[in-house]
Design a protein around this nucleic acid. Structure first.
Lengths: 352, 352
DNA sequence: CTGTTAGCGCTTTCAC
DNA sequence: GTGAAAGCGCTAACAG
């Protein structure tokens, strides 16, 4: 590679007839006073040579990277939106965000990415509730790189500085109650056992929504990762017997949509026979037929909180907006876990 | 930050009682022969200290980063799948892939990411057909960083080493012919003017599919970015008059789905009154009702080609599989543009 | 087999 | 205002 041809600060210096220190000065526009003439000369030399600063050298010298890392299970749907939103947020603070996908919840890949980011000496890390063992704690704790997670429960404070979580439990309880109010005589949760903490939260909420007084209604927890979607629906139907309508609450909209497709195939009417509630409020849940009731994810609030908190940890000055945001939410945290409410978007899959 | 506490190779050396060169040697497992005892001592020191190599220093010294950069318009759907697939592919060659989203086709953000990646001295770059001006060419050409794009047309070879494109034109022609075969008396293309080259390709194919002999069939090109989806459908209906069924071919599945939803709302029957063909073969096009006919994107083939080509450019040894792949496809390239076929997946939105 | 040393490209005192 | 020089953490000859 003609890589070696990349001009350096030395080339610029000699081209401009100044010292490299001076070049560095104009590059970093420090408070150092400089002759406008000098500045001009340097700037001209820079364009003439097509000089481009070498970030590795810069960071090495500064002992700071102005880089943040994000690890998500995949790029689609909610996670993709999260990444995009966070990228913009941290950009306002002058940071870059490198995004890596952990290929579904693969702990190994997760770890590989984390390690790499750490080796790159990013200034901060954010990740979904990790699938890997908490033992990897050591690595993180070792280098004081701040780590904040989103939608992860039960992580010790020594590892994770903050967890910005969505209140799936509350939402799930609301979903169940909504089914009951709509006259459902059977309610089923269709979860994904590989959904980690997010699945547990839903289950917990689902159960609490049924009430302590063990309502006289058919109910069950199914696991689609185990049964597959077709057999899951079979099972839901079987368990419900004659009890109609059946309320099916799914781990996410993608799942709800698949079940909806199956219902169409088998002539099961939605919402007359089966009512459906999903999670994520994906574009297609609005555009499906019938449209699917779902919960909207406040991605923007979540990323704002993550960004603000991380910036503060890193020692960046916060603008007023971020400061207020933190002041409003942080006190409500349980330990270091923040809980954010979800809004239910009622659509045709639950109302006649 | 306790950042400064991060142990360095020097700490490891003294902890192990050897020189830093030795540490570096065991770290990089070079062909250099070493006493097993020495290796053990060093490795122990490494874990004891929780040493983590500083990639910036390493890269600076090696003048090589083993990093690749990918820029996509957003993380969702096809692009997200592309990113995930490419990440895995290059990983096999020992490379990391940093993914950045250009926030929809924003040329400014695109440029910012590109510049950043270049400053980070990545070994190679891949991007969707860029939205930014070709003038930015200078920057890229300057540092001999190889750039390959996917789904970008008309980029000069001086800028782009290779373009791995999907044959949207051919697919579009096929879509049209399929409509005609199914008895459509009106065929409409609903495109997105901000779809760049990909949209142009579709238009071109759409027109050629109609045949040179200007078939006696109603046809039109509509632009949803301009009209919005509701008015686009109105327009399609108006233009078609009594000619049924109408074949509507959309830029992508997301758009097809929205139109489908509108049809349901207005009692327009699919496929009796309107037939629909999308593009991307998203999960939801299979699970929608009726399921939407679409074109499947051979993401895996595309990323394999991109990865193989890039590795070759960088001077990495290719495994046999990659070599064969390149030998099979490269000769078919038109200039430096490769064209890959799409498969039409026929579903209920086009057949009764 | 192991250690010395000269960089990699840039930042940052601290004199001049 | 500007420049000389000492690192930042690591690699890669080259001696020994």
């Amino acid at each position: 590679m003609s890589k070696s041809k990349q001009p350096t600060i030395i080339d610029v210096a000699s081209e401009a007839g100044v010292s490299i220190a001076t070049v560095s000065n104009v590059l970093n526009r420090r408070k150092v006073p400089m002759a406008p003439e000098t500045i001009r000369k340097v700037e001209e030399a820079i364009v003439r040579l097509g000089y481009r600063r070498n970030v590795m050298a810069t960071n090495l010298s500064r002992r700071r990277s102005y880089e943040l890392g994000l690890i998500i299970p995949h790029f689609g749907g909610y996670y993709g939106r999260f990444a995009e939103s966070l990228e913009q947020k941290v950009h306002r603070f002058g940071y870059h965000l490198s995004v890596f996908s952990a290929a579904g919840m693969d702990p190994e890949i997760e770890q590989r990415h984390l390690e790499h980011l750490l080796q790159r000496r990013v200034d901060g890390l954010v990740s979904h509730g990790l699938a890997m063992s908490m033992k990897s704690t050591q690595q993180l704790v070792g280098g004081g790189t701040p780590l904040v997670i989103f939608n992860g429960w039960g992580w010790p404070e020594e590892i994770v500085q903050l967890a910005v979580n969505l209140d799936f439990a509350k939402a799930s309880a609301q979903a169940v109650r909504s089914f009951l109010n709509n006259g459902c005589r059977s309610v089923i949760y269709v979860g994904k056992s590989n959904g980690m903490g997010a699945n547990d939260q839903r289950i917990q909420g689902f159960l609490s929504g049924l009430g302590n007084d063990s309502e006289p209604v058919v109910h069950a927890l199914l696991d689609v990762s185990e049964l597959g979607v077709a057999r899951t629906l079979d099972e839901a139907l079987r368990l419900s017997g004659e009890c109609r309508p059946i309320g099916i609450y799914t781990f996410n909209d993608a799942l709800a949509l698949e079940i909806l497709a199956l219902c169409h195939e088998r002539g099961i009417r939605v919402p007359e026979d089966v009512q459906l509630i999903g999670m994520d409020n994906e574009l297609y849940s609005k555009a499906s037929f019938p449209a699917i009731t779902s919960f909207d994810m406040p991605v923007d609030l979540q990323t704002s909180l993550v960004a603000a908190f991380l910036m503060k940890q890193i020692g960046e000055d916060l603008d007023e907006e971020s400061t207020l945001l933190l002041e409003e939410h942080l006190p409500r945290a349980i330990g270091h876990e923040l809980l954010i409410d979800l809004d239910m978007i009622v659509r045709k899959s639950t109302i006649a």
